[in-house]
Design a protein around this nucleic acid. Structure first.
Lengths: 218, 218
DNA sequence: CCCCGCTATTCCGAGAGTGGAACGGCGTGG
DNA sequence: CCACGCCGTTCCACTCTCGGAATAGCGGGG
């Protein structure tokens, strides 16, 4: 199975040849929107893996300063593997905040609104069902039966512990509700767009180039 | 350094002896509030690690059905290691949705509101700063300069790609804003509670027992 | 003049996590 | 009676990820 970093590297290389450093810069800057980040070492390892699998090839690219850069470009196999992934079935992740969905959405967008609409709908269905299944935390705190409590502190402590847990639980519920709300509005938007332009076609877009360098948002 | 699962197992065992299955059940049920989940195999491995380090000891506990269960209990060293972690400095994670904060909050709650208040404030400061540093995604899509664009599709495609990216970006911003809002309200709440009860004291609380079994919320 | 930050890549050990599968006995509902 | 779900543990082969350090040359600011 293809991992997140597989997709990200393939997806970025699909837009044209890039160096490991380009990928790193892109991730440091925009990774937040995907909820993903990666160590430098990992990125280069990943690019190495792509070459091993024959999905990318690197050509040396001399730079004015420092060591030569390696420009990685997708091979035909790589392109095929990537497109095969886009067509592969999507299974929403258990953890709602995992990058899976965002990665899928970002790197499937060249297929047009209809594809994304389907994706969003699948995610929405899954998250709604998941949301309904949630068991309140306090049940885990209070306990409903058998075990005779060992040594519960005074009532104040128990009350405080419950309070704290409920606070934390509210975080989860709030974020889940927000996520669902966003999915709903995205569904709306995409439905309109899909109706407007029915024909999809692939097109590349660039990574941030060195001209717009500055802070790497670390 | 202690990992999340280290903390979770230590924190749960601190409340009294439990089997690997108990931990698994707890995680499946309530892990969502922490944004964390783990494979069964991993839990047992983790418990084994605790024993290796001398932080827990297991005693066989014959059950009516199936194989004997192993009841894991914290040792004195384990308790110390756990409390040392509670006192250790907290460094917010890069990725806002990583379980780090929630784990910290949940398993520090026995220290009382003041501790959590400090924790929440640290997290809040960090997330606000991070939020301000975000670079809009479209800058990464449009590109500002040097590289001559290879073959950009027609304007429609570019417009659509931007549209899709902005949609995804709005998800990130919305969730970040929601998270910050929650942190603010939590700060409020904790400030009140801390003012009300100044004296902290540790107290245990139970895992969900078998009486309240039912669905494991998968 | 010196230090810092940016570009750019490489290497490595350790262990965390994935994604199953296997086994067995009990109780329950159909 | 049979199937299924619950309880409970174990094992495995990877693969991914973490974290840090090392190297190097250039340019700019103080």
């Amino acid at each position: 199975m293809l991992q997140k970093l597989d997709i990200i590297t393939l997806g970025l290389l699909r837009q044209g040849p890039h160096t490991g450093y380009d990928v790193r810069r892109w991730l440091n800057r925009y990774g937040w929107a995907l909820g993903y980040s990666a160590q430098t070492s990992q990125i280069y390892r990943q690019l190495g893996r792509l070459v091993e699998r024959g999905w990318a090839a690197s050509t040396p690219d001399p730079r004015g300063s420092g060591p030569d850069a390696k420009l990685y470009a997708l091979t035909e196999d790589g392109r095929e593997a990537f497109e095969a992934w886009v067509d592969s079935p999507y299974q929403p992740a258990e953890r709602p905040m995992d990058p899976d969905f965002q990665v899928r959405m970002y790197f499937s967008r060249h297929r047009g609104p209809a594809t994304l609409l389907e994706l969003v709908r699948m995610e929405l269905r899954f998250r709604r069902a998941q949301h309904d299944r949630r068991v309140p935390l306090d049940a885990g705190l209070i306990g409903t039966g058998t075990g005779p409590r060992a040594d519960s502190g005074d009532a104040d402590d128990a009350a405080w512990a419950l309070e704290a847990s409920l606070l934390l639980e509210s975080r989860g519920r709030l974020l889940a509700a927000t996520l669902i709300a966003w999915l709903e509005s995205a569904e709306d938007r995409l439905a309109h767009l899909a109706a407007a332009l029915p024909a999809p076609s692939p097109s590349p877009d660039p990574l941030p180039d060195s001209a717009s360098r500055k802070a790497e948002t670390r």
